[in-house]
Simulated scan of single mutants.
Amino acid sequence: MPYDSAATRSRLLDAAYDEFSARGLAGARVDRIAAEARANKQAIYAYFGSKDGLFDAMLAVRMSSLADAAPFTPDDLPAYAGALFDALQDNPDILRLTQWAWLERAEVTPAEVESHHSKAQAIAAASATALTETQAMDIFILVLSLCTAWTTTAPALQAVGDPNPTTRQATHRAAVIAATAAVVGALSA
């Protein structure tokens, strides 16, 4: 069977997703990733340069898929908040990965800075009032916080015996959308 480098790279990224989301950057082991991907450990270094490079590549791929699942709509942030909330519920490991990155790395990457900066600029441009980029960034950060809060608090609600987690999740989603609309309205006034 001929060697397929694209397939090997893809398997490594998938295995890295599982390993890094479960154990973080420090706890992940390239031996486990290579074994899970049915690849030689040296392939990780050949394709990605290092374990950190693999983490960065895997996170970029997953964040891109999140962006596809929840396209950014600066002119309708409540709809974006609902879509992002849904995408995070469908892919909770993405949030876990970003939390690992925040815990294990002191600085944000240039790509993260650019992503947040461009979103703030788009929010400011789409605003009916003259929002500053700082106000637009505040709105964006609040939307992210609202969308991620459920994923981090839902296990505690389930632990204390939330009688209907599905209904509670739908109620929380509606609250995220309403709160986003209120934040946009308050900061845009």
Rank of each mutant, 00 (worst) to 15 (best):
D68E: 15
A111F: 00
I33Q: 09
A120Q: 10
S5E: 14
A16W: 07
E104R: 06
V108M: 14
V61K: 12
L12Y: 01
H117T: 13
G82E: 13
R9Q: 14
H172L: 06
D76A: 11
H172T: 14
A6V: 08
A179H: 02
A6P: 00
V113E: 10
T98R: 10
N40T: 07
A60K: 05
D93P: 01
D138Y: 02
D86A: 09
A87N: 04
M137N: 05
A149Q: 09
Q42C: 00
T8G: 01
A130L: 13
Y3K: 10
P2S: 10
S65E: 15
M63W: 00
N164V: 02
A83H: 08
M58F: 02
A111W: 01
D4S: 05
R32V: 15
A170L: 09
R168E: 02
A101N: 08
V113C: 03
L103G: 12
R96I: 11
L103M: 06
E104Q: 10
V184T: 10
A57D: 12
M58L: 05
F72R: 05
A39P: 06
A43K: 12
A120R: 07
L88S: 14
V61Y: 00
F55S: 08
L142F: 06
T167R: 08
A69W: 01
Q99S: 07
D31N: 05
L77E: 07
D86I: 10
T148K: 10
I139V: 09
E114T: 14
A186H: 04
V183E: 00
H117N: 11
L25R: 13
N164D: 15
A60F: 02
H172W: 14
A181K: 11
R32Q: 15
N91K: 09
P74L: 06
I139D: 03
A136D: 02
Y45W: 06
L66S: 06
A179D: 08
Y3Q: 05
L59P: 04
R173F: 04
R96T: 14
A15N: 12
V183P: 00
A28W: 04
